[in-house]
């Protein structure tokens, strides 16, 4: 299925720090906001100049068709995101989207699992899955990385946390406590976005429990619309998938 895509001159409505490395950018982009579904992303041109040259793909953390706003939560990691982080209120950013295929929203008892910046698209997903009873499992290295708990607290039944250093929640990684959660919960779907080993591990455990699983993949990409083939990955039976346009959301068995 192909959804309508557009290039929109979006204006900055809000731009705040959520931690010392992570920012939330709210843009007024009514055309994109109207079409977007959770799991999709936008492709931002961070500068008018030719350096940095390429757009930056960033997942949607919300899109509101009514007020026309979209929000993006991103970590300042390099040249492009550093440039992006300098945008201030009222400035215009060239925004291509909404791109890619989103999550399937038919879950009755979903468990959302996120790690690192993979948590960002789950914010939008949680909102879209309501009023289904949602449980969320978040993993981080340390307490400071998990500012997300504030964002999710009103949009879920239960929040489970793991940290590598034990400063918040259970000490360890998400996969350590996943089997136990699946044993006791009555989940019919898990959604995972985070580092690849985490997604592969969660998909494997989900399979053991007979629960359907969607994953959201990440890759370097240039075009964002399925043309350049920078982001393709191998699927089952020699099939090739474009992460930007066939994904980023896939059923786990399609790609792992």
């Amino acid at each position: 299925m192909t959804l309508p895509k557009t290039v929109e001159e979006a204006s900055v409505v809000e731009h705040v720090w959520l931690s010392n490395q992570v920012r939330k950018l709210v843009l007024y982009a009514p055309q994109i906001a109207k079409e977007a579904v959770s799991g999709q992303f936008v492709h931002l041109r961070v500068a008018d100049q030719i350096d940095p040259l390429l757009r930056r793909p960033i997942s949607l953390s919300s899109a509101d068709a009514i007020d026309g706003k979209i929000s993006l939560i991103y970590r300042v990691v390099g040249h492009g995101t550093e440039r992006l982080s300098r945008l201030s209120f009222g400035e215009i950013v060239d925004c291509l989207g909404p791109l890619g295929q989103g999550f399937a929203l038919d879950a009755v008892r979903p468990l959302l699992i996120g790690g690192g910046m993979g948590i960002a698209p789950l914010v939008f997903l949680a909102e879209c899955l309501r009023p289904a009873p949602i449980e969320i499992l978040l993993g981080g290295r340390t307490k400071e990385e998990l500012f997300w708990t504030e964002i999710f607290k009103d949009n879920c039944e239960q929040l489970h946390i793991t940290t590598d250093d034990g400063t918040l929640g259970t000490k360890g990684v998400t996969l350590d406590i996943l089997p136990e959660l699946l044993q006791h919960g009555k989940f019919d779907r898990i959604y995972v976005c985070g580092p690849r080993p985490m997604m592969e591990g969660a998909a494997k455990i989900a399979k053991e429990f007979g629960i359907t699983c969607q994953v959201s993949l990440e890759a370097h990409m240039a075009c964002g619309v399925g043309a350049c083939l920078s982001c393709t990955c191998a699927g089952k039976n020699g099939k090739r998938h474009k992460i930007c346009s066939d994904g980023p959301v896939f059923w786990a068995e399609e790609v792992f």
């Binding site: 030719i50 350096d51 350049c228």
Partner: peptide
Amino acid sequence: CRIAETPAGMLNSI
């Protein structure tokens, strides 16, 4: 990895 951004350009190895 198949692309890398470089100053005012990009490398690809599709």
